[in-house]
Amino acid sequence: MVDFRPPVAPLFVPASRPDRFHKADESGADAIILDLEDAVAPTDKERARDAVIGHLAGLKSPVIVRINASGTPWHEGDLEALTGLKDVTIMLPKAERPEEITNAVLRIGRSVPVIALIETAVGLARLPDLLSVENVVMAAFGSVDFSLDLGCAHERMALLNARSEIVWRSRAARRAAPLDGVTTDLSNPEMTKDDVRHAAALGFGGKLAIHPKQVEQIRQAYRPDEQTVTWACNIVSKTASGEAIQVNGEMVDRPVMARARLILSRADIET
């Protein structure tokens, strides 16, 4: 498996707007998604690629490049642009076939992490096959395009089954917990916070952001509070042997120990 650290709050920025790269880099996002796809007009695709090539080395954040989907006029050009770039992750939109991913990796010419963006019913149906590709490190949910493909409302109840399936299939494939889709309403911070809480409750490992002000809202929702961190520290400190014991009247076995370590990991506390 390729080296990759799953982000919690990666931020989209149009690759055609290099004037925004620095702001995104300073936003607190744990990865930047330079978007060559939906955020870039067809006439600006080549200029966007040039911006990625020219500015990548100056960014301190981990970089994910969302390329154009397989079968589009810009897909091959995007892959060609990435052949000379190191330390990038690919996000493949409209992911539906494993061979699209393997062909992209072969075209780039080196092992590169790939995030499969699930935006269609076909992509969801073939998710087990997509996650079985060696370079695929995680899935992400393109909920807006997915609802468009199904002709359903972009609402929680309509998308609940799809979200849950992406989570449990990711776990079954031993891949990182997936990223939830974007919150498009930028006028209501409470909506973003509520969407993040919903995603976290379902088991998503993070959420895609489309504006810098959403980044901290996402990270805060995934950051354990002080009481939870104290509980986790207490559990880990008293279960070094790995044996099931009682801690403050609570029966602690392996799943509870694993949950405590996960909490400390999210709080950036080494165990």
Results as ranks from 00 to 15, higher is better:
residue 90 I to S: 03
residue 63 V to P: 00
residue 86 K to P: 00
residue 98 P to Y: 09
residue 89 T to I: 10
residue 66 R to Q: 07
residue 73 P to Y: 09
residue 82 L to K: 05
residue 92 L to R: 04
residue 99 E to V: 11
residue 102 T to R: 08
residue 91 M to L: 14
residue 103 N to M: 12
residue 84 G to Q: 11
residue 94 K to R: 13
residue 78 D to C: 11
residue 85 L to W: 06
residue 83 T to H: 09
residue 97 R to C: 09
residue 61 S to R: 15
residue 88 V to K: 03
residue 102 T to F: 07
residue 99 E to N: 13
residue 101 I to C: 09
residue 70 S to C: 14
residue 92 L to Y: 02
residue 81 A to E: 05
residue 98 P to H: 08
residue 100 E to A: 12
residue 92 L to S: 07
residue 75 H to R: 08
residue 97 R to I: 12
residue 65 V to S: 02
residue 89 T to A: 12
residue 95 A to P: 03
residue 65 V to H: 03
residue 97 R to G: 03
residue 63 V to W: 05
residue 99 E to A: 10
residue 101 I to T: 11
residue 93 P to Y: 05
residue 86 K to C: 04
residue 92 L to I: 12
residue 92 L to H: 12
residue 90 I to N: 03
residue 98 P to D: 11
residue 90 I to L: 14
residue 95 A to G: 08
residue 85 L to R: 05
residue 89 T to H: 03
residue 74 W to H: 12
residue 67 I to M: 10
residue 78 D to W: 04
residue 102 T to G: 09
residue 100 E to R: 00
residue 75 H to L: 05
residue 78 D to V: 09
residue 84 G to D: 05
residue 73 P to H: 12
residue 93 P to E: 08
residue 59 L to K: 05
residue 67 I to A: 05
residue 97 R to Q: 15
residue 76 E to Q: 15
residue 90 I to H: 01
residue 73 P to E: 04
residue 97 R to P: 02
residue 79 L to M: 11
residue 93 P to R: 07
residue 77 G to W: 04
residue 96 E to H: 04
residue 69 A to W: 00
residue 88 V to T: 10
residue 66 R to I: 04
residue 80 E to K: 14
residue 83 T to R: 15
residue 62 P to R: 07
residue 94 K to H: 13
residue 80 E to I: 14
residue 73 P to Q: 10
residue 90 I to E: 02
residue 103 N to I: 01
residue 72 T to W: 01
residue 89 T to G: 09
residue 71 G to E: 11
residue 59 L to D: 01
residue 102 T to V: 11
residue 78 D to N: 12
residue 75 H to I: 05
residue 74 W to A: 13
residue 98 P to F: 10
residue 100 E to Q: 15
residue 97 R to F: 14
residue 85 L to K: 06
residue 77 G to S: 07
residue 60 K to H: 14
residue 61 S to N: 05
residue 99 E to S: 13
residue 100 E to N: 13
residue 71 G to K: 10
residue 91 M to T: 08
residue 95 A to N: 02
residue 103 N to S: 15
residue 88 V to S: 01
residue 69 A to N: 06
residue 73 P to S: 08
residue 70 S to P: 00
residue 87 D to E: 15
residue 62 P to H: 08
residue 76 E to I: 12
residue 63 V to L: 03
residue 65 V to W: 02
residue 85 L to A: 05
